[in-house]
Structures are given as C-alpha cells and as structure tokens.
Design a protein around this nucleic acid. Structure first.
Length: 323
DNA sequence: CATTCGTCCTGATAGC
DNA sequence: TGCTATCAGGACGAAT
C-alpha cells in the first residue's frame, strides 16, 4: 500500500522518463478513476493533450506533474525561463494504484484505467499507464497556485514557487528538509485525540499511513491511544524520528509491498515487508521483547475500520487513552 | 471550529 | 461447488 516511501520511489522512477515529454493522446478506460476531476472525462483529456510534462513533484502521498502548454522547447527537459505551469496532472495511488511506463507492445493490464501516449523519445517507453484495482486512487487536473512556504518540498524540491492547489492543505512529511518539528508539536498538543489518529492526519504530518504509523509507534514504544494534548516533547520527537527511520529504510529498500497489488514504476515489487516489526504480525513474538528474553505476542485491535498492531509489553495502553 | 464517522471499491479468502 | 460475509484502507465530505 503506497505510503510516502512508495510514492517517492514511483516519483524517482518517473521523473527521468517523463520530464520534457509531450502528451499526445489520452485513453480513459474507466471514468471512475477520474472521480476527483469534477469537469468530466472530455475536460480532463482536453487539459492534457498537447501539453508537456515539466517535472514530477510530490507532497506527502500526492504526486503531480506540472504541465506546460505546447511542445517542449528544449528536448532535455524543463526550461527555467519558460512560462510557469498553470495546471498539473495530479495522481494519488490510493490503495492499489500504479503508474507504469510501458511500451505499446505490452498488453493492457487487467485493471488499466487511464493511458497517456507520449511523444516518442529514443530508448524510452511511449506510454504512462495508470492501473488501479480498488479505485481508491485516481487522476485529475489541478491548478498550480503560489505558495509562501517554499514549494512542494520533500525529496523532490521543485524550483517552482508553486504548489498544486489540491495538495496545498497537505503538511510536509518527516523526510522533508523543511519539516518543522516545532510547528508539528505545537499543533499536536492543541489536538484532543489519540496519537495514531494524529499521525494519520495528512494535514498535520504527511506521508504516514497505517503501516508506518504502527511501525513508528512500535519503535518509539508508544501506544496509539496516547492523548496528543499531553504528549511529552521527547515522546513526540521519538515517534517522529522513528517514522523517519522506518521510511528511510523503506526508501532504501525500494518501498514496501505485501499484498502484491503494489509494484514500483518498473513493475517490480518491494521487499521491505520482511523487516516489519509490528504491522501484520498478530500472534508473533515482539522482536524487542524477545531480545531481552521476554515472550510477548503482537496483538491486533480494530481501530475504526482498520487494524492496529502493538506489543502489549513495550507499548502499554494509557489509562486515559483516546482513539 | 475541531473531531469523528460513513463512503467509495475489488478480489482474495474463510466459512457454511 | 457455489454462495455470502469479511477484510484491506486513503481521503473527503457530512454529521456531531
């Protein structure tokens, strides 16, 4: 399931293939993947055809491609002096979305939703395909608007002082060099909710989904129901540092994948799931407890409509916990 | 305003 | 065998 590391792996994979390529035509095989494009399929296609991809940028789990009108003026890619893109093609992978570069000879994937045909370029695939089984993800066109906080950020710092409008409300992620812990902690303390809920709130800190939330909480020895309005600064620092570590490990491994729906831009599955300590390990021994001779079994609890995995020994439930 | 909850989806799997 | 129930969950908008 794509969280920040997976989306970043996709972004890195796409940028060298897409920058400077012109979108020549668009096939929409399933309009449900354009649910967030309010003006409909024809408008979506009209916005894309004939434009050139200036860059591939990310904020949290949102990935977008700023578009310039007309053909690329320099085959090598972006032209710093050119007109700033007014719109971008936005992608969110949801639960099972994939962005695949493919040659036209490759048969359509079973769950192919949208195909972009690109200007031909020596040695590069000519199609970008959006494949999505569960349709929680999607594509849409969004305006590029000025931002006063230094741009999209993340590991893909854009030279443009613009951000996609539909991602403007998303907070910076823990790997973003411009991420402010002080800002995060101040906002966290004002909330009256549980720690995991806060970690999953993309407006507070982005990029963290159910898997990395559980892994970060396990590493920090904190229970998901710890009240945010009373959390000590050291605990908040520890859980953020843990999230950063887990995501960097995943990034180094090429992204996590465990339900085999998710594959990276080249179609290869990640393998980081082997090193998960909490997520999906119900009934298995806690690795940290085992290291000191204690046998404790990871427990799974329902949290809204999702599961939370914790060690009952090293992540004790707070007496005044909040969901 | 802050917070919580329902909804969108498919397909693998379990149980009868 | 073939049916139904359950589960996976990101993000938005409605409800509280």
């Amino acid at each position: 399931m794509p969280e920040l590391p997976e989306v970043e792996v996709v972004r890195r994979g796409l940028v060298s293939w897409l920058r400077g390529r012109t979108i020549t035509s668009v096939d929409v095989l399933d309009p449900r993947s354009l649910r967030r494009h309010a003006l409909g399929v024809e408008d979506f296609i009209g916005n894309l055809e004939g434009t050139t991809v200036a860059d591939v940028v990310r904020r949290g789990k949102f990935l977008w491609m700023p578009l310039r009108e007309g053909l690329s003026s320099s085959p090598a890619g972006s032209t710093p002096g050119g007109t700033a893109p007014a719109v971008a093609l936005m992608a969110h992978l949801g639960m099972s979305g994939q962005l695949l570069m493919q040659d036209p000879s490759v048969p359509d994937e079973k769950h192919l939703k949208v195909r972009l045909r690109l200007s031909q370029s020596e040695g590069m695939p000519d199609q970008l395909r959006f494949v999505d089984q569960r349709i929680f993800g999607g594509l849409f066109v969004t305006a590029m608007i000025p931002t006063d906080d230094g741009g999209p950020g993340g590991l893909a710092e854009s030279p443009l002082p613009l951000i996609a409008e539909e991602a403007a409300h998303i907070a910076r992620d823990p790997l973003d060099p411009a991420f402010s812990f002080d800002l995060f902690y101040a906002r966290l303390r004002k909330r009256r909710t549980g720690l995991k809920r806060a970690l999953l709130d993309q407006g507070l800190v982005s990029g963290i989904g159910n898997i990395y939330a559980d892994e970060a909480l396990w590493r920090a020895c904190l229970h998901y129901a710890r009240p945010t309005d009373k959390l000590r600064r050291a605990d908040a620092e520890r859980v953020l540092a843990s999230a950063r570590e887990v995501m960097l490990d995943a990034l180094a491994a090429g992204g996590t994948s465990f339900d085999s729906l998710y594959v990276n831009v080249n179609g290869a599955s990640g393998y980081f799931d082997r090193s998960l300590n909490a997520y999906g390990r119900e009934g298995q021994p806690c690795h940290r407890c085992a290291a000191v001779g204690i046998t404790s079994l990871i427990r799974r609890e329902q949290f809204m409509n999702r599961s939370s995995y914790t060690c009952p020994v090293c992540q004790p439930r707070p007496r005044n916990g909040r969901w």
